[in-house]
């Protein structure tokens, strides 16, 4: 029972961290119509930024400034937001596809930097000893996980409220208007572009924050955490939840993560050892197919606003 509680808190924390990323994506795609296939990259930038800022000094690595966790989170948002802003500035005056291609490239390059810039990122082994909040109660798993869940839930709620507020603000109305009417957006030219860059950067910053929150939650990060599969998962979460709805983004994250973890546990229990890797591949096939089916039959998602996006 205790284990179950503890696991429940752990599960929910992970799911809500996905929820934060999905909220960031919803700002970019749901509200503004900007396509991002490099989510894993922006998420990783946040995680590494915060890790480098907050870890204690190590001999063979740049960074290790030992700063407070809050500073790490701010740094994560700033750096991921900056990366997103540059991506936006480079592509948002061009056709939508160029943004998609460039974000894909961002994720590739971030992956390379994580693997190869060992002096900064620790290479394939990543960064360890990332300070965890409430490390003092680590030996009491229920309490520890519960406290962490409160932090993650608090951040999720704060981002949720902030985005709800933003999307109802004049700023959010402009973004929606730009998304609905491509021609108006083009004729507005520079100012429309600047709105979109702002939205893309803000979404990137939210993803970066999610990366930082997760890094401090786990205490250890490595390039393997940030594979393209993560980007797929987040897209599936947003599409299931219904793009355009912040509530849907969070619910979709919990549902998809539950399906993912559940099917993972089922294959681990039922599939013989040498077929596990193949079963895991099939799990991803399922997500891909699901994404396509949603696009075909229910583009508004399951929890989204009634009015479809298409």
């Amino acid at each position: 029972m205790i284990d179950l509680l503890s696991y429940g808190a752990f599960f929910l924390s992970t799911a809500l961290i996905f929820g934060i990323i999905t909220l960031g994506l919803n700002l970019q795609w749901g509200l503004t119509g900007l396509f991002n296939v490099g989510i894993a990259g922006f998420f990783a930038i946040g995680a590494y930024a915060s890790a480098i800022l907050t870890t204690p000094e190590v001999a063979d690595r740049i960074g290790g400034f030992g700063l407070p966790i809050a500073v790490g989170w701010l740094g994560a948002m700033a750096l991921a937001g900056l990366a997103a802003a540059i991506t936006g500035i480079a592509t948002l005056r061009l056709k939508a596809d160029y943004l998609a291609i460039t974000t894909f490239g961002v994720a590739v390059v971030v992956q390379l930097v994580m693997l190869n810039a060992e002096a900064l990122t620790g290479g394939p082994f990543g960064v360890a000893f990332i300070p965890r909040p409430f490390a003092g109660v680590q030996d009491q798993p229920v309490l520890f996980n519960a406290l962490n869940l409160m932090v993650v839930a608090g951040v999720t709620l704060a981002i949720y409220l902030a985005l709800e507020h933003l999307s109802r603000s004049p700023w959010g109305r402009v973004l929606r208007a730009l998304r609905e009417d491509e021609r108006a957006a083009i004729s507005l030219g520079k100012s429309a572009r600047s709105y979109r860059v702002q939205a893309f950067a803000a979404g990137g910053a939210v993803m970066g924050l999610a990366g930082a929150v997760q890094a401090h939650f786990i205490g250890f990060i490595a390039p393997d955490n940030y594979l393209p599969t993560l980007t797929f998962q987040v897209w599936a979460m947003l599409m299931v939840g219904g793009s355009g709805s912040n509530r849907g983004a969070v619910l979709g994250s919990i549902v998809v993560w539950a399906i993912w973890v559940g099917s993972g546990a089922a294959t681990a229990a039922l599939v013989p050892g040498d077929w596990q890797a193949r079963a895991a591949a099939l799990q991803i096939v399922a997500i891909g197919v699901m994404l396509c089916l949603i696009l075909l039959w229910r583009p508004q998602g399951f929890f989204g606003p009634r009015r479809g996006r298409m």
Partner: peptide, 27 residues
């Protein structure tokens, strides 16, 4: 219409196709 939805679909299809290869032939 909506070209960017097709891009997204190609992204989903890409993931499914690639993982299907991993399923059939291992990595």
């Amino acid at each position: 219409g909506q070209a960017i939805i097709i891009v997204m679909a190609s992204f989903g299809a890409s993931m499914a196709l690639r993982s299907l290869l991993e399923f059939l032939f291992t990595s």
